[in-house]
Design a protein around this nucleic acid. Structure first.
Lengths: 320, 320
DNA sequence: TTGTATGCGTTATCAA
DNA sequence: TTGATAACGCATACAA
């Protein structure tokens, strides 16, 4: 029928026929069958998104950015949860690809070899998010975790702290790079001490932040500042210090990562590294759908940067 | 081919043919096309899930429950974000239904009339989550928000607080029922005062918790306890009290709702009403897929209950 | 600008 | 137990 044309490319149909078709469509409550469309066209309007976690605030902000950008468009977002497992990610990529998606959004740079092979052969557009790196499969939008945490470290040093420690949970690749950023900068300043690094494979929570600080202080009581791998840990660190009567920021500086909303509300407000998660989701969607519409991005890799937001938790009065 | 049978119903094919088919499938890397399957069979393995927010911790826990339950199964989760809008919800339901999903998971009881009509006619199984109510479209798993917040109110009264206030943000239907639960119980005890209720349509954040408390205290400085519509607000309330030098729990009791993990880590730990969000997601998935497999639930409506978790923020020493 | 024929890859029906 | 055939509803290519 001409109906198919009318619905997808109204310009190619005369105005008269168009109105007639629309009238009938309304009356019958006709809705196109996406399965039939997918089968005939050999492609879909599905954009697959794979994130390591659906509960982590960081990724839910990114997801929100994607969903908001997709709102009202013809694109269907399909979300996969890899639970930080490269194997689950691979399985999700396989499932998604079998659906002939128009595009795929992946997190990070550290796909398994098999996944990488699948992606290189895939005939859909791909955006990697969360990080910036040298060799995108296709496109990329994120920031440098190494640089961001190096900047946070410099902030601590500039505030006068001299015996900084680091706490981290679930050492996924991005966490590791943040730790590396801290280490590099601390070594450069001659204040690095591996004894002031405490990590655990457990997923990060506020409670875990308390525990890691307890650990850190028992091993290295001289610690005068803590760079936390994320904001949950930072909040826990603040609570634990307060419970122990350790004055923040005077006796102990605390810095988080991501700058979740609650950081500014804490007492004292907690210094953190702001990242642009909503924008990341939105931009990833726009790059992808733009490319699908034939508009190639000016740069395949977009660096959204970061921003150290200094607050009370590192506003030291005296000096170290 | 016999191949289709072999893959979906291996019992109907002889062992010999089966192994032969599997060998060829492996060798060729054959993957079935879900679009063709959907078209031919007139149904899919898609389970549509519509939540009001992808960033709210409450829903991300539910989502996690669903995704974890679905992990490795044949069921495809498709997530929609209605952003607390009945209209967006309706549009999502329409989109999902056009895909002939096997099932649908919806949040709450307050769909628009048009949505309700769509759902009643839909030929797929439906589970409503987050609440319990009398007339499910099909199945339901949640709890009573009225009862839960009434219980929290009783806890405050039992702890000796006599001038309780209530703060709430974004008055979605569930928030309103929680407020109603507070009001009912406070009136029953003769301690209700509408002047101690502060609400706002803005989405809830920790910062907003601070602001609402500031508002509440300026209007009703006699307030000696705050029941918060959720945990973000409760955390903000704690921070704000601490900033003002108001002693928690002695001068002010604070109670949250949902019992997010951070409540237990705070200083003092914050009393909250625990809800079983992970279980809710998991059970909703299981009820749905069970029903699809022909196993009807014993009860169409499952009440998961709640639990008031008393902590330091309402452990008053003296009395009110 | 509109209509017609053909095929997408699978499932369902029926026959062998 | 297996094979053949006809849909499923749309898009593509081509003809009118």
């Amino acid at each position: 029928m001409t109906v198919s044309r009318a619905l997808r490319d109204p310009d190619k149909v005369s105005a008269k026929t168009l109105t007639k078709i629309r009238e009938v469509v309304d009356r019958l409550g006709y809705v196109p069958d996406p399965a039939a469309s997918a089968l005939a066209a050999g492609k879909t309007n599905v954009i697959g998104v794979i994130v390591p976690s659906v509960t982590n605030n960081v990724f839910s902000d990114v997801m929100r950015g994607i969903y908001e950008a997709a709102e009202g468009s013809k694109w269907q977002i399909q979300l996969g949860n890899s639970r930080y497992s490269p194997l689950e990610e691979e399985s999700l990529v396989r499932t998604f690809l079998s659906q002939r998606p128009a595009g795929l959004v992946l997190s990070g740079l550290d796909q398994s070899e098999d996944t990488a092979r699948l992606l290189e052969r895939a005939d859909c557009r791909i955006v990697q998010i969360m990080e910036c790196g040298p060799a995108p499969y296709d496109m990329m939008v994120g920031f440098s975790h190494v640089e961001a945490s190096a900047a946070a470290t410099r902030h601590l040093l500039a505030a006068g702290y001299r015996r900084p420690g680091y706490i981290a949970a679930r050492l996924d690749p991005r966490s590791q790079r943040r730790l590396a950023g801290f280490r590099g900068e601390a070594e450069k300043a001659g204040v690095f001490d591996a004894g002031r690094i405490v990590t655990t494979p457990r997923p990060s929570t506020v409670t875990l932040g308390c525990e890691l600080v307890a650990d850190l202080l028992s091993k290295a009581p001289e610690t005068d500042a803590i760079l936390c791998n994320n904001d949950d840990l930072a909040l826990g660190a603040l609570f634990e210090c307060q419970r122990r009567g350790i004055r923040v920021p005077d006796q102990m500086g605390i810095c988080g990562f991501n700058d979740l909303e609650m950081m500014a509300a804490a007492n004292p407000p907690i210094t953190s590294v702001r990242t642009f998660r909503l924008a990341m989701g939105r931009d990833a969607f726009r790059m992808l759908t733009g490319a699908l519409a034939g508009i190639e991005p000016e740069q395949p890799v977009v660096d959204l940067g970061y921003e150290v937001v200094a607050r009370g938790s590192t506003a030291r009065n005296g000096q170290g």
